[in-house]
Design a protein around this nucleic acid. Structure first.
Lengths: 404, 404
DNA sequence: CTAATTAAGTCAAGCGAGTTGACTTAATGC
DNA sequence: GCATTAAGTCAACTCGCTTGACTTAATTAG
């Protein structure tokens, strides 16, 4: 968003933009509906049969779609459905957390094909980056073993890490101060030769839910992510919204009351960090996930007390989110074990009344989303895929760098 | 959003979409930058000189832009700047409130050319509609007196009224139950022969700020509107966001705490309705505006007490909005007299710390926006203008079927 | 005062993605 | 068997943006 000229204006478009958009529309339609024939696509996208035929032919020769057996359905010539080819594109996703980093390789459909994790030194990013680069290299090697074309078809590296980004220098331990200052993206771009993009962890979670989860094909959804911190990933008009500085949805530091004793950040009440503190656990313990799972399954009293408290605040967070965004659904995801997340969602019932409490709803107000701890890395990987293949406004305009 | 076919897909586009987008981009560029030459436009929009020339020629013959005197600026042939023609398009805006309705006619630049108001029976919409239709007809006559082409160039009728819309039947007096049930849009469309669109009042306020106010050219802004109720108008990525049911930003009914005695709707603490109640005023009084102005100027003790309380809650609302949206700025607008609104904004200082408290800010965190009571009607009128002339994603697609 | 330079804007041919309408292919159903 | 229905192709066409050369008109250097 740097202004080269002092004149403010949106970019124009031309036939290239048209064609890029139509390709993306086809891909999205196949992703959302499974296999479709050219005639189906023509009806769904309002394009002519001929235009669709040309585009599909193109996509087929690019190895992004493939024909299935013809199917007869009533009168007329049988139709030939096409589906996406998972191996048509790949992306690497990287999740950087306080004590741990995970890397995955995914395909066009969002299937995870390779994964690796490693511990991370909390305050030594220059060392950490070496670990990360090795991790990525390993995942790439694994991927190359699965598909010979993987390197050619790699669209980018998506990075997810806790936000918020770009604030005042601070030593707040929540914010991984050493990492905030480190030129991470540049280093990774140089070290991998890939296009690199950054999201916060909650946004990545929403991206994951959108490609292979509860938000698949939902255009207005908010994804509450309860991890070490807490954040919301916003899907508005079918696109991830990141705000003016990439910090939209960073509700962890939001105060629960304007003043007085109740005026604590949400993060201090409803996050895994607060749970660890409540239980006296050490977040750097390698088996902490197992410990929590055991406590959740045993309905440990102390944990249940924390759940009650967190649910109290989260119930209200959902109420606020519904009032502000009017989403089709709210999805709660978590880095915690599934048993814990499930109990948390149960404890949030009944939800507070809100404008979401309307007749004719199609989706539940609150759903439990993915609780796989790898889902943030998956979402990170899904971001470059989305950028390359989803129908976005920015993809139509003339300087939408790096299309594919 | 009705699915004609069971296949979910975005619409494709073609040269018409391209051309429509480029026209809109030109218009927006002229709106944001004043007068620009063809060469300027070509640089700003990344289109070729020739393409711009053709489009400008088109716009000129459509009466939307006009050439100014050539200006010399250094070497080379002098450039001929073009500017928008205010009389290039008109729209009618209608603001329906509990006891009052206002209609305005605006031009392409958002200047109000005619206005009229009338009292409205609170719970008799069928009578009310007749009053409204007459009001609109009067404004249209006035407009016709100003420009002979006004009828030909009328792009639509925008309606703003308090939300939320489409909830369960209720007798909540806040929500104007009789009006919610009445088929208002259909009746107005039939009665005026115009395209009709609906927004809630806060959204209209944001639309007004965007066309001629503090949000002019700002792509990420939240507009807090303190009227009879309270709501937020959301400008995200340069477009108004209305949520999945047009109720985004309806924070009036949001509870200030999850439970307990503090658990009241924001609307009961920070809205003009709460002020009227606090002061024992009757909102149906025709001189209530003057009364409030007098009290504000006199720094009436009771009013100052209300301001303190409202500012307390609003300060926190801004904090939450900043945490959630990461906007470039928050704009407070109000139907209250300017003196009152100014005191309210002052009382909100200092703001609570938040992620908006970052280095390198270009805009203030909180600004006082328009306090003209006609601004909602203006925003209502600006909506059809925006829909017809702003570069929107939906404008590129093939069936930009009239949504709202 | 002239010539070189710089920049705005036009001209005319070309390109290319979607459109159009007729045609082919291949099923079902009466 | 023949009419009907629908998928998909062919080939000519359209129309908005692009390309590159050209014209116009100013400033600046010598």
């Amino acid at each position: 968003m740097d202004d080269i000229s002092p004149i403010r204006a949106k970019s124009g478009t031309n036939q290239e933009g048209t064609s890029a958009h139509n390709r993306r529309v086809m891909i999205e339609a196949l992703r959302l509906n499974g296999a479709l024939s050219r005639a189906d696509l023509a009806r769904a996208t309002q394009l002519t049969k001929q235009a669709v035929s040309n585009i599909i032919e193109d996509l087929e020769s690019d190895g992004l779609v493939v024909a299935l057996d013809a199917v007869r359905k009533g009168r007329g010539q049988p139709s030939t459905p096409y589906r996406l080819v998972p191996e048509g594109a790949f992306a690497i996703g990287l999740h950087i957390d306080r004590h741990l980093t995970r890397a995955v390789a995914v395909d066009l459909m969002g299937s995870v094909l390779a994964r690796a994790e490693a511990n991370l030194p909390f305050d030594e990013p220059s060392k950490g980056v070496e670990i990360i680069l090795e991790l990525i290299a390993g995942v790439r090697r694994d991927l190359a073993g699965i598909s010979a074309q993987s390197e050619k078809r790699l669209v980018g590296l998506g990075v997810a890490m806790p936000g918020p980004f770009g604030l005042k220098d601070s030593d707040d331990k929540w914010m991984m101060p050493a990492w905030q200052k480190f030129p991470l993206l540049e280093t990774l771009a140089k070290g991998t030769g890939l296009n690199v993009g950054l999201q916060n962890d909650a946004a990545a979670c929403a991206t994951a839910e959108r490609i292979v989860g509860a938000a698949h094909g939902v255009d207005h959804a908010v994804c509450l992510y309860v991890g070490y911190g807490i954040g919301a990933g916003l899907i508005l008009n079918g696109e991830l919204y990141s705000g003016s500085n990439g910090n939209a949805g960073e509700i962890g530091m939001a105060l629960l009351a304007p003043a007085g004793p109740g005026s604590t950040p949400l993060e201090h009440r409803a996050s895994l960090a607060s749970l660890y503190q409540h239980l006296g656990l050490n977040p750097a313990d390698s088996d902490i996930y197992k410990q929590m799972n055991a406590l959740a399954l045993a309905e440990d009293a102390k944990m249940m007390a924390w759940i009650e408290g967190a649910a109290h605040d989260l119930r209200w967070s959902v109420h606020l989110i519904e009032s502000i965004f009017d989403p089709q659904t709210v999805i709660l995801t978590s880095g915690a074990p599934a048993a814990l997340a499930r109990r948390l969602v149960e404890a949030m019932q009944p939800l507070l009344p809100s404008i979401a409490d309307r007749p004719g709803r199609m989706l539940p107000r609150l759903q439990l989303g993915t609780t796989d701890p790898w889902s943030i890395a998956l979402g990170a990987a899904a971001a470059p895929i989305s950028r390359a293949f989803d129908p976005l406004f920015s993809a139509i305009l003339k300087t939408s760098s790096a299309p594919v």
